[in-house]
């Protein structure tokens, strides 16, 4: 095609290199849900996951930013950062310590981004992971506001929403995601979610037995009405310390009531207006 040979068009389409959308394999009924268990108790804050993610997914740089508040200069997940190592320095109290956590898309079981997506671009793939189909997304930005974890961002380069794909491409080739592969302490573990949940519960028991009674699981079970996370965490302090919501709202729940109340208000106003039009003085006659 002559159009594809135009350098401008090539550049435009390569802002984010085209990724092949893998075709779900037949017989995926037997495919278990795949997810992450991020155990922050062994995270050393090396950021190998951040680097591996950027490299494998060919994500552009975020520039040299210096926050000045900790070793975390990435600050948050975004359209170009799909793994982010949070680094909280806790000075004072009984003992000073560091909290480190490799944050990622939570791949929610009941995902607001997937439900709000008006184009059907965001789907659950055959691994049960929440995936933005880059060939469908038109950059409306609804998922960005719907996500209670602030995971998604819209790229100024191609105008579309991007987030962790849980290395869909690697998974279809039987490989584990780049971040999990690169993690030197097995803080990031990848596998069938059910197995990971069992493993994680045992890990909490072990930690409790060792005297680390603060350890608990975040998102392995439902979070105060918000469904489970297929990418869940073991934390050692209040979720807000890691910039995670304590009980994330599921904004798309309860819509039926909101529609009903709106239509009711509209109907009452319509009835009153109809009354004013029918009972008016016809003095013009």
């Amino acid at each position: 095609m002559i159009l594809q040979q135009l350098p401008v068009l090539n550049e435009l389409s390569n802002a984010f290199p085209p990724r092949q959308t893998p075709v779900p394999s037949p017989g995926s009924d037997t495919q278990p849900l795949m997810g992450f268990f991020t155990d922050t108790s062994v995270c050393i804050g090396c950021k190998a996951c951040e680097v591996a993610c950027k490299q494998w997914n060919q994500l552009p740089s975020d520039g040299f930013n210096f926050t000045g508040h900790s070793y975390d200069n990435t600050r948050m997940l975004s359209e170009t950062t799909w793994r982010h190592v949070a680094f909280k320095e806790k000075i004072g109290g009984e003992k000073s310590r560091w909290l480190m956590m490799s944050d990622v898309c939570k791949h929610c079981e009941d995902a607001p981004c997937q439900q709000s997506c008006p184009t059907g671009s965001i789907i659950y793939n055959e691994f049960g992971d929440v995936y933005v189909q880059p060939d469908i997304c038109n950059g409306c930005g609804y998922c960005i506001s719907a996500c209670p974890f602030g995971v998604l961002g819209r790229s100024p380069e191609d105008g579309r929403a991007h987030k962790c794909t849980l290395c869909y491409d690697r998974q279809t080739d039987g490989m584990q995601p780049a971040c999990a592969k690169s993690c030197p302490t097995a803080s990031i573990q990848f596998g069938p979610v059910e197995e990971l949940r069992e493993k994680a519960k045992q890990r909490v028991e072990t930690l409790h037995a060792q005297g680390n009674t603060q350890a608990y699981l975040y998102g392995a079970d439902s979070l105060d009405g918000y469904g489970r996370l297929n990418s869940f965490f073991l934390l050692e302090d209040h979720p807000n310390e890691y910039n995670l919501p304590e009980a994330p709202p599921q904004p798309l729940h309860g819509q039926e009531t909101r529609y009903a109340l709106s239509l009711l208000t509209g109907l009452v106003l319509m009835l009153l207006s109809a009354l004013f039009f029918s009972k008016g003085d016809n003095y013009a006659r």
């Binding site: 900790s70 949070a86 806790k90 960005i144 961002g153 302090d237 979720p239 807000n240 310390e241 910039n243």
Partner: peptide, 19 residues
């Protein structure tokens, strides 16, 4: 939090603003 300070992450936004 456990040490009696307010639980927060350097006041980095938790959410993304609407586009």
């Amino acid at each position: 939090d456990s040490s009696g300070q307010e639980a927060s992450y350097y006041d980095v936004p938790m959410l993304k603003p609407p586009v």
